[in-house]
Design a binder for these strands. Structure first.
Length: 568
RNA sequence: UACCCGGUGGUGUAAUCGGUAACACACCAGGUUUUGGUCCUGGCAUUCCUGGUUCGAGUCCAGGCCGGGUAGCCA
């Protein structure tokens, strides 16, 4: 896939270009992707990852992977590993720059002591509830804590004892002494440290006080010599505090820049909601192919190249936008169209018997592996008297513009012969269970020597040679573009799409698929792109539908149906 | 009702000292085709509003309107 041609610079690139021009950072560009290891990464994180690593690459700089592990009660080693895997999968390389905020705890503590000594921080004994009360509201100023004017000596002593574990959780905090009447609530003496007697996944029980995000994050950036600290819009109000801490300490001071996070139609992106979907079993897990997680996309069969191209096209700005999921689907198709081998498989089989084809005969026909890539070559596909075709490819009473099979009508079986439908066999219930056809031996390979044309070409699988596969058809997880668009009293779960997963067991597929491995991607001709699920391990073939092909016919048919419907 | 940030077609992103609104997706209409796929062609916005500055404003100024964020000892 052609990546990042000379696209116009987004506003962050513009800032960097200007900085380079003025020599602000001595020509350096150093970014970082700083996830908290408290969950799985989703495509919104992919935007951030690609932005940060992309900037570094574009301007000859570096990008760190840093785990912002300052809250031990929410974080786990398992998440660290999954995040590393996902970042790598996207094609980003942090080389030797893997860092953890927890490695800086000692330095952060020393800086906190420095702030106390400068009279800029104090130990506060207010309870969490009292702290909230004293903070005031959006429209009312806060009040000073009664502990705000403790002596430096007392603060130093108390802070040391907080670290030593003398006090219970929630009993005291270390706060910055700024301004309780500040219009920005983040500046009303924010908490820097809280007491948390909780084991940390990396530091164990070495600490029982942990730094808050606002205190820690700028220090982490500073320690790592970051130049541009890029985060999402909701941290805009935190920037004055980010700047304040760094200014007080007179240390390296990166520039914080905020951009809009990625939102997609027909899905949710918040960690809380994704966690709920998993916990309440609306999906099979974090890597359920319907999830917008990186692991879900991967299992779905989406390629890293498609995600990269998608994020590139989405752009970077400060406008709170919602991207049409159709753009992602387009990027997936565009990539897979160029790379996925074609294959034939039938989702909803209808048996066809070629009456004039000898009972015990069979033969192999040549099929093109990928018309977009001549180098992909050809393969043999077996043919015999009994075949399966798609139920959708036959209509006893065909509507206008239906080019497929119908009684008396002739179509082409892809790479095989022209066949004409001569009979329809039904069961007692009146359902079509089998078709009788005749074939024209002269049309072998799909062309008629007499120049005869057919309107339709359909796919098929030889009944005798077919392999059986379970196919999972995935659709949008939610049935509305905005899952939060619900009546009063309901929530996004009310919009869960009951059809988001349809499993079709035992679908006949061509025998060349016998060697397919988990992760392999194919285009099932005329249907869509599918990939082999890891569940196939036991020798049983399981496919996930990544995305359908564009389907002009179903669109047309739907429109005709609507038009023929009586008015009002 | 406080502070901060935004507002260009159905959806996004551009227009870099103010100079005749570009690209993509979606949608619509055609063409090609052994995938109703791909590919190709065409259609689809007077830039939230009102004033102002200017020969000229999406870009600058003023006022308004609308949307988002913020009251964790989460990040």
């Amino acid at each position: 896939m052609p990546e990042a041609e000379n696209a116009p610079a987004n506003f962050i690139e513009q800032i960097i270009i200007d900085d380079l021009k003025t020599g602000k950072w001595a020509g350096r560009v150093h970014t970082r992707f700083p996830p908290e290891p408290n969950g799985y990464l989703h495509i919104g994180h992919a935007k951030s990852i690609l932005l940060n690593f992309g900037l570094a690459e574009k301007f000859g700089g570096k990008c760190n992977l840093r785990f912002d592990d300052t809250n031990p009660v929410k974080e786990e080693e398992e998440y660290v590993e999954s995040i590393k895997r996902d970042v790598r999968w996207l094609g980003c390389d942090w080389e030797d720059r893997l860092y953890f905020a927890s490695d800086y705890f000692e330095q952060m503590y020393a800086w906190a002591v420095q702030l106390i000594e400068a009279g800029k921080a104090y130990v506060c004994d207010l309870s969490p509830e009292q702290t909230r009360e004293y903070r005031g509201t959006l429209t009312r100023p806060g009040r000073n804590s009664p502990y705000r004017d403790r002596s430096i000596e007392e603060n130093l002593d108390l802070f040391k004892r907080m670290r030593a574990g003398e006090f219970p959780d929630g009993s005291r905090t270390l706060r910055a002494k700024i301004d309780m009447a500040h219009p920005n609530l983040n500046m009303r003496d924010p908490v820097m440290y809280r007491i948390l007697h909780a084991p940390h996944h990396r530091t164990g029980d070495a600490w029982c006080i942990y730094p808050m995000y606002d205190w820690a994050h700028g220090l982490e950036d500073s320690i790592e010599n970051i130049t541009h600290s890029i985060c999402t819009l909701e941290f805009e109000n935190h920037r004055p505090l980010y700047d304040w801490f760094l200014d007080q300490l007179h240390v390296h001071h990166p520039q914080q820049i905020e951009f809009a996070r990625l939102n997609l139609t027909y899905t949710v992106m918040s960690k809380r909601k994704l966690l709920e979907l998993v916990r309440e079993r609306h999906v099979a897990g974090w890597d359920d192919p319907r999830m917008p997680t990186i692991s879900g996309l991967r299992r779905r069969g989406v390629t890293p190249a498609a995600v990269r191209e998608f994020c590139r096209r989405v752009g970077v700005a400060k406008f709170d936008s919602v991207i049409d999921i159709a753009l992602l689907e387009h990027c997936i198709r565009a990539d897979l169209n160029k790379t996925a081998p074609r294959v034939m498989g039938v989702l909803r089989p209808l048996k066809v018997v070629i009456e004039n084809y000898p009972e015990n005969q069979d033969e192999e026909l040549d099929a093109i592996n990928n018309p977009e890539d001549p180098a992909a070559g050809t393969r043999k596909v077996p043919f015999c008297r009994e075949l399966y075709i798609e139920r959708d490819d036959f209509r006893e009473d065909p509507p206008r513009k239906f080019f497929r099979l119908a009684p008396g009508r002739e179509v082409r079986l892809r790479y095989a012969y022209f066949v004409t439908c001569t009979g329809v066999i039904k069961n007692e219930a009146g359902q079509t269970v089998e078709l009788r056809c005749t074939y024209d031996p002269a049309t072998r390979g799909g062309d008629a020597p007499d120049g005869r044309k057919v309107k339709g070409t359909i796919h098929w699988v030889s009944a005798r040679h077919a392999l059986r596969a379970d196919v999972r058809l995935y659709d949008h997880l939610f049935s509305k573009p905005d899952p939060d668009d619900v009546p009063e009293g309901q929530d996004y779960r009310a919009n869960l799409n009951p059809q988001s997963l349809v499993v079709l067991p035992g679908c006949p597929v061509e025998p060349s698929l016998g060697t397919a491995q988990p992760g392999d991607r194919f285009q099932f001709e005329r249907l869509g792109y599918f990939c082999v699920d890891p569940d196939s391990a036991g020798g049983r073939l399981v496919f996930n539908r990544t995305v359908t092909l564009r389907d002009t016919w179903s669109k047309l048919e739907k429109k005709m149906r609507e038009n023929s419907r009586p008015e009002h």
